[in-house]
């Protein structure tokens, strides 16, 4: 399928209807997920704030999923020198940064009533913050190089460096957290979620996936159009 879609024209024809379909699916799932979230029973300890989980946890999951997409697109872009893969990588980074920021912000909002503090230097929180900084660095590098193919290649190399480094960073931060005494406010999650929490979480995760898919396709389309407009402008200028 990917090979067929590598043709920009075929991709544009495919994404023309795929993006709206995904958006409708995302809207439907979001509505269902939110309804499930609000009709879920209150947690016996956390009360109503447990509902933040259904917004927070899928965002954290998407933060990593977007990076995997970014890494894959960068690899394809570097190996096959494909324009569409470069556009996909370029389009993916702000979405990933957005989901990461959402995860951090909802985490802070959840942390305030539950842990009694906005921010904890907990291993997971810290590594997500590093991931966010890495997204910013990636976008900064892309923005700082004028030539577009060169910018795409440089940031692609950085994305691959990150693909190797992010697991190491994750490991080192976990290690650091066990060396230092873990914050006592942080409560280890229960053994497993009961189904009335699992369902809204799963539906919301699928909704986020569909939303990301729709936005990604729209952004890649915008990239393709922007390039086309640029080359037309160059032609017109002679």
């Amino acid at each position: 399928m990917f090979q067929a879609l590598a043709n920009p024209q075929r991709f544009m024809a495919f994404s023309r209807w795929a993006a709206p379909v995904l958006a409708v699916i995302a809207a439907g799932l979001l509505g269902w997920g939110l309804w499930l979230s609000f009709s879920a029973p209150e947690d016996y300890q956390q009360g109503a704030t447990v509902r933040l989980m259904f917004i927070h946890v899928p965002a954290a999951y998407m933060a990593m999923f977007c990076y995997a997409c970014l890494g894959a697109a960068s690899l394809v872009g570097l190996v096959f020198r494909h324009v569409l893969a470069d556009a996909a990588a370029r389009a993916c980074a702000p979405l990933g940064a957005g989901f990461t920021a959402l995860a951090l912000i909802t985490g802070m909002l959840w942390g305030r009533p539950m842990w009694g503090t906005w921010w904890v230097w907990d291993a997971r929180v810290t590594s997500v913050l590093v991931l966010f900084l890495f997204y910013i660095g990636y976008m900064a590098l892309q923005a700082a190089i004028d030539d577009e193919t060169r910018a795409a290649r440089a940031s692609g190399i950085l994305a691959l460096v990150g693909l190797i480094n992010l697991p190491i960073i994750k490991f080192s931060v976990d290690w650091w957290n066990t060396l230092h005494q873990p914050a006592s406010v942080f409560r280890k999650g229960g053994p497993s979620l009961p189904p009335e929490f699992l369902w809204p979480l799963g539906v919301m995760a699928l909704a986020y996936m569909a939303l990301f898919g729709a936005l990604w396709l729209v952004r890649i389309r915008a990239e393709v159009w922007r390039k086309r407009a640029q080359s037309l402008a160059l032609q017109a200028a002679g």
Binding site: I136, L158, V161
Partner: peptide, 25 residues
């Protein structure tokens, strides 16, 4: 990576400092 970019110095710091987390830890 930052060769041929505008504003090299700050850019290097922003790219590299997150990667410095493991050796610092």
């Amino acid at each position: 990576l930052s060769l041929g970019s505008r504003r090299g110095g700050v850019l290097i710091a922003v790219i590299v400092l997150p990667l410095f987390a493991p050796p610092v830890i």
